[in-house]
Amino acid sequence: MPDLKPITALGGGTARRLHHGALELEENTEQALASLALRRGATQPASFGIDLPGPGAWAQSVEIAAFWTGPDQWMVEGQNRAGSDFASAVGALCPDCSVTEQTDGFAVFEIRSSAGERPILQLMAKLVNIDPIRFPPGCATRTGLEHMSVFVIRRAAHHIAILGMRSAAGSIWHALEEHIRRIEDRKP
């Protein structure tokens, strides 16, 4: 049996990071994901310590976060749980729901600003078709990033996350890096 080593969505042995000016871009390799859908006639589960959010919203507790993806559907996030059977854990908490493992299907990129909200607003204005002023912390939506479909989550005033298909991870990283460099290089 060959000695197999896991690699990140970007093909490395460790998460890729970029720090340019006030913005930091990081590949989040520890984020577990599971899709959750209510079955017909089921009631919304409340076992996460959060109310599952409505359209355009994201909510978090100490261990779990979730964002709305469609009627009676959510993506559930578990930080530092990528190596576990996250979908089974979510399924055990939500027996009246259909749960599907999504961790290896997506790449997650975190973008933080050390200079407050302004660099994040500038980046969002250039990066995606979302009005950043009308997208405060706690919002999440699916939108286009160049030629790719991604989820954008506003985790905090100075922090956004981009989730895209793992097969497009290199293209997403390239687009994010280019936009970050342009914004930071234009500052006086």
Rank of each mutant, 00 (worst) to 15 (best):
1 M>R: 07
3 D>I: 14
4 L>T: 13
5 K>S: 14
6 P>V: 10
7 I>G: 03
8 T>S: 11
8 T>A: 06
10 L>P: 04
14 T>S: 13
17 R>L: 09
20 H>A: 01
22 A>Y: 03
22 A>H: 01
24 E>F: 00
25 L>V: 07
26 E>D: 11
31 Q>I: 06
31 Q>M: 15
31 Q>F: 01
32 A>I: 07
33 L>K: 07
38 L>H: 01
40 R>F: 08
42 A>N: 11
43 T>I: 10
48 F>G: 02
50 I>K: 06
51 D>I: 13
53 P>H: 05
53 P>A: 02
53 P>K: 04
54 G>E: 08
55 P>M: 09
57 A>K: 02
59 A>F: 00
60 Q>V: 08
60 Q>A: 14
61 S>Y: 00
63 E>C: 05
65 A>C: 05
68 W>C: 04
76 V>I: 15
78 G>Q: 03
80 N>T: 01
81 R>T: 04
84 S>R: 04
87 A>C: 10
94 C>A: 15
97 C>W: 02
97 C>K: 07
103 T>D: 08
105 G>T: 05
107 A>F: 03
107 A>T: 02
108 V>K: 01
110 E>M: 08
114 S>V: 12
114 S>L: 07
115 A>Q: 14
118 R>V: 09
118 R>T: 13
119 P>T: 09
122 Q>R: 15
123 L>E: 13
126 K>R: 15
128 V>H: 07
129 N>S: 06
130 I>Q: 11
131 D>I: 03
132 P>C: 09
133 I>Y: 07
136 P>H: 09
136 P>S: 14
141 T>W: 06
141 T>D: 12
146 E>R: 14
149 S>F: 02
149 S>N: 15
149 S>E: 15
150 V>S: 13
150 V>W: 11
150 V>E: 12
154 R>W: 14
157 A>L: 15
157 A>V: 09
160 I>K: 04
162 I>S: 13
163 L>M: 11
163 L>G: 06
165 M>F: 09
165 M>G: 08
165 M>N: 09
166 R>C: 05
166 R>F: 01
167 S>R: 11
169 A>M: 04
172 I>S: 10
172 I>V: 15
174 H>A: 13
178 E>W: 04
183 I>E: 01
183 I>V: 01
188 P>C: 08
188 P>M: 05
